[in-house]
Amino acid sequence: MKYMLLHCVDKDVDISAEATAELNRAMMAWLEDTIPRGVSLHGGQLQPAETASTVRVRGGELLVTDGPFAETKEQIAGYDVIECADLDEALELVSRLPLRYGCIEVRPFVDRDQALPRRSLEVAGWARAIGWRDDRLQRGEPPSDVTTAEPAGKTGNKYMLMICVAEGVELSPEEVVESDRRMTAWLEDTIGRGVNLHGGRLRPVSSATTVRARKGELLVTDGPFAETKEQIAGYDVIECPHLDQAIEVASRHPVARFGCIEVRPFVDSEQAMPRRPLEVAGWARAMAPEGEGQGS
């Protein structure tokens, strides 16, 4: 099973520099354990909720609001994608993450093909998912325009798109077809341009489990981290030179027409990279500037 871990932090809590250092150490220890085992696939830390913009398209008109998709006490501060046997294993992994200042929502992905890198040779998953007929993709080769696309890593900023839908929204069969068509076009375009790094669809919020730690005790509860009208149904990580372009990309996502998309910058462009033992340098640098724990 593949799970999305949504790290949430109580926005009223001021975390001291000391506590931050301790959190980073705990995170580091977790990554050192989970990356070599291939359990932790990728993840990243987001800028605070004040930096969020939420995008909606209604009646063909683009509506951008300042702030996150829901004004909740706890706000999403980062994410991790893990792959393990079952929920118990996921909860065990979560129990070793820093939980003192908020909580972690554990949400299963709809299938294992989700959240795979979208620029590398591993495109087969999403290509199958969206029914891409390109033979090269079926063979696992990237499309030609991807290889020629300008590598965005150096100049681009990374943004998390949280795809949110209100519970109970039902589309007619025609709308579903239309939405799927738009989704395929959106993926073809954003992946083709090298903007869309990875993403995935989550199972409905009824499958969510939230973990908190209070007074040294682990509290596991059924349900999402906050009972909001709109809930996260999926995510995409995109790389763009600036927020305006990120908003433009979000506005063309089909869900913007009936749900909303929160656009949130990552703390830096090293975030949300695939975590393979050979590619640990990124997070190691990010976590320990003085250079300890460098990967090979």
């Binding site: 929920l87 118990d88 009824s206 499958s207």
Partner: peptide
């Protein structure tokens, strides 16, 4: 129905937990 879906969707294992749990 919701509980059974959650067991299936969220991957709750059908087992007696191991000693540490």
């Amino acid at each position: 129905v919701r509980a059974k879906h959650k067991i299936q969707d969220a991957g709750i294992p059908f087992r007696v937990p191991p000693p540490h749990l």
